[in-house]
């Protein structure tokens, strides 16, 4: 792991103010920012891991857990919010037993909250991988998730 992180950050070496591009590159290549990555970057830039983490978490674009096989996004944009987005998120959290930003232990699912997917008419919506599920009220979400967990079916 360290090696690949080292490889990724190599082109930026010695460049001032390159922390964000480095983090972006790491996330792009490995899918997330690991503890390992942060300590390697810290060593390289002669900063502490906490400083790097502080900078990284200031931006919402970075994730810190390995993404699961399926990405579940629950919309909490205004329209979805008023039509039960919070409950939908609660339910989803309960089913997967994780919080947004986390990945299930079996690496099957990651959960994220997003703001408006641009299809407010269908609110509340949930997106699994790239598929949008409209009007997900009540227990509907259980069915949707189970579709992905029972087999490797990807639509």
């Amino acid at each position: 792991m360290k090696n690949t992180i080292k490889d990724i950050i190599k082109p930026y070496q010695g460049e001032k103010g390159s922390l964000i591009p480095i983090l972006q590159a790491v996330q792009e290549k490995t899918g997330f920012i690991s503890e390992d990555a942060i300590s390697t970057i810290a060593m390289d830039m002669n900063m502490s891991e906490h400083e790097i983490y502080g900078v990284a978490t200031f931006y919402t674009q970075f994730r810190y857990t390995k993404p699961g096989d399926h990405m579940v996004k629950v919309c909490l944009g205004t329209a979805c919010h008023v039509r039960g987005g919070e409950q939908l998120l609660d339910r989803t959290e309960n089913i997967l037993n994780i919080k947004p930003g986390q990945t299930t232990l079996d690496s099957a699912f990651s959960l994220e909250r997003v703001a408006c997917m641009g299809c407010c008419a269908l609110a509340p919506v949930i997106v699994v991988d790239d598929k949008i599920y409209p009007n997900v009220a009540g227990p509907k979400v259980e069915k949707i998730i189970s579709r992905y967990s029972s087999s490797d079916e990807k639509e």
Partner: peptide, 10 residues
């Protein structure tokens, strides 16, 4: 010169 803590998130 330690940097054991930082302001996280936003």
């Amino acid at each position: 010169g330690v940097g054991a803590i930082s302001l996280t998130k936003r």
